[in-house]
């Protein structure tokens, strides 16, 4: 029986992560002895185990029940779902909570292939309003709705 692509990828990820942590701990952390363990002791041991398990994932024989993934990768979703919190992060300090929320909800709504433009707009407006009501009004989170209101109050 041969190794499937899935096994190779999964195992590869673990080997890479393990190797990365192993290299970092070996170069920056002290191992110490078993009596007085340095900060590097457990990281080195665990990183080695992780590399070994990664190889194990690649070599493991599974009785044919590990079928290859047939579901398509939602590329569109991946792009928009990761973009949305990033936009929020970029806007919340400089522009305020309301614009940041609006941008985030709109971007995330675009992640679905099933949504027509008009639906995206409705979802965006309704969810942003609900979120502002919940977080700003009910939960009283201490972030200004618009950054400029803070600026005018200060100036």
């Amino acid at each position: 029986m041969r190794t499937t692509a899935k096994q190779l990828k999964a195992g590869g990820i673990f080997v890479a992560i393990g190797a990365f942590f192993l290299a970092t701990s070996l170069s920056t952390l002290e191992i110490g002895s078993t009596l007085r363990m340095g900060p590097g002791f457990l990281p080195i041991v665990l990183a080695l185990v992780l590399v070994a398990l990664g190889l194990g994932v690649i070599l493991e024989r599974r009785g044919g029940e590990d079928e290859e993934e047939t579901r398509p990768v939602p590329w569109r979703g991946l792009v928009f779902i990761t973009l949305a919190p990033l936009l929020f992060a970029l806007l919340v300090k400089g522009w305020g909570l309301a614009p940041a929320l609006l941008a985030m909800v709109a971007t995330s709504a675009l992640a679905s292939r099933m949504m027509r433009p008009i639906q995206v707009m409705i979802v965006t407006v309704v969810l942003t309003a609900l979120a502002l009501l919940l977080f700003s009004y009910l939960l009283q989170l201490p972030y200004p709705l618009f950054a400029s209101t803070l600026a005018t109050m200060a100036g």
Binding site: I81, P85, K93, V105, T124, L127
Partner: peptide
């Protein structure tokens, strides 16, 4: 299609409210 933008909004605001830090996002 209604749920996941709401989940995402909740996630981002929740995380941001922890430390007010965009690094967490």
């Amino acid at each position: 299609t209604w749920l996941f933008p709401a989940i995402l909004t909740f996630s981002a605001i929740g995380i941001y409210s922890l430390n007010g830090n965009v690094f967490d996002l």
